[in-house]
Design a protein around this nucleic acid. Structure first.
Lengths: 223, 223
DNA sequence: CGACCATTTGACATCTATCAACGCTGGTGG
DNA sequence: CCACCAGCGTTGATAGATGTCAAATGGTCG
């Protein structure tokens, strides 16, 4: 458990003693694949820290149209900003069996007020995430679908490696396109040798990472 | 100057003495309409706090395609998160003549580390902004243009009132559509009596705020 | 082996961007 | 005072990209 905290970005600048103090207030919880850790709109009473497994943060509309914001893994917090806004603004669904640690909102904020290093790391983390979202917005508004699929693949691969275990539909929700459209793009990428052909169901293998990266630099403003 | 700080969300929980201390390290600066306070990619060495005027935060690609993220006014900070990430990740351009206060990055972070209230407010602010961006992403990926234009109008009106002084092109960049498309939507809204017909150039007047709000609730997920 | 779900492919509808032309308005200079 | 110009707003026609619908294929698991 201590190790989980030490691996978590927002706690990394704390001393071992401080981490021990905080982790003493955390309780573990398990969720099985497919279940929800919380749903959008629930009151945000706990900070969740991922220990094991992966979780999809998304906003599924009643019509079935999903928007995926992030896939979280060990060391990530789940929609931690919601502790500030009062209610979770995304849903968290387990993609695998999952173990999390959770800390009550008030206790967590107590620590934040007490340890400037912790507050500072949170600020850095939120800033980085905001930057990511801004870039993503710019990409969505400017780029064509093929670009965006490639961009999604790069983002996912840099976090999870070149073998992604996700369905086409999940990639489509992450990219923000129809499933069929994503499949057609993947088809083109296969023919270009960028994506592997063999891949099992529910799996996407990136065959040539360099080519993939090259495919998204052609547009304006490489920054 | 003190007043500017007191009106600024991130400083609002500080004592007068603390505000005085911080504001003693701030220096004012003026920019005339059209000029850039900073441009995307510049090293983020200062925190800017708006005192007077309005500023557009955007990302203009060389091809001329602009994405507008926010219009800032008195009390707002300009891309403050950039102090964490190292370089500004949007450009800040004055829409009017503008007065800002600026504080050197290191000094500002010194205060953040020293005053937990300040750090906490920053966390709240960033969290709220992240929530806004998530909603916006969901809207972009799910909604049709008409919805999004209405949503933009509501957001802008709740900050600036029902008379917006902006060109169609600026609204289009904010909404993420072509200028002509935005104009066509505005045409429909005029006919529906939601938007005023008289409006001068460079001005958009919202005639019926209730109808406007009603126009964006029809889709999924009213949250 | 059979059922079910993911994946794929095709045809089609439609939305939106793009291109082009024009009108209007306010400002400027003769 | 008038004519002209430049920029913004508006409208129409068109093409292209992407979503949607429908159906076939193929893989996986019980």
């Amino acid at each position: 458990m201590i190790q989980t905290f030490a691996n978590c970005q927002i706690f990394r600048n704390l001393s071992l003693g401080e981490i021990k103090e905080i982790s003493s207030r955390a309780t573990p919880a398990h969720y099985e694949r497919g279940s929800f850790i919380f749903e959008i709109g629930d009151p945000a009473n706990y900070l969740y820290i991922m220990e094991k497994g992966s979780v999809k943060l998304h906003n599924m509309s009643p019509s079935g149209k999903g928007v995926t914001f992030e896939i979280s893994k060990a060391g990530d917090t789940l929609n931690g900003s919601a502790l500030s806004t009062g209610t979770y603004f995304v849903s968290a669904q387990a993609l695998t069996d999952v173990t999390v640690l959770r800390i009550a909102r008030n206790e967590f904020f107590g620590f934040v007020a007490k340890y400037p290093n912790l507050a500072m790391e949170i600020i850095h983390l939120l800033s980085a995430r905001l930057k990511t979202e801004y870039k993503r917005m710019a990409a969505i508004q400017r780029e064509e679908v093929e670009q965006r699929v490639c961009r999604s693949l790069v983002a996912l691969a840099s976090k999870f490696g070149t073998t992604l275990s996700m369905k086409r539909e999940e990639l489509a929700d992450y990219t923000g396109t129809a499933t069929e459209t994503t499949i057609r793009v993947l088809g083109r990428l296969k023919r270009a040798g960028i994506v592997g052909c063999s891949a099992h169901k529910g799996e996407i293998v990136i065959a040539d990472m360099d080519k993939l990266r090259a495919a998204i630099v052609d547009t304006d403003d490489p920054r």
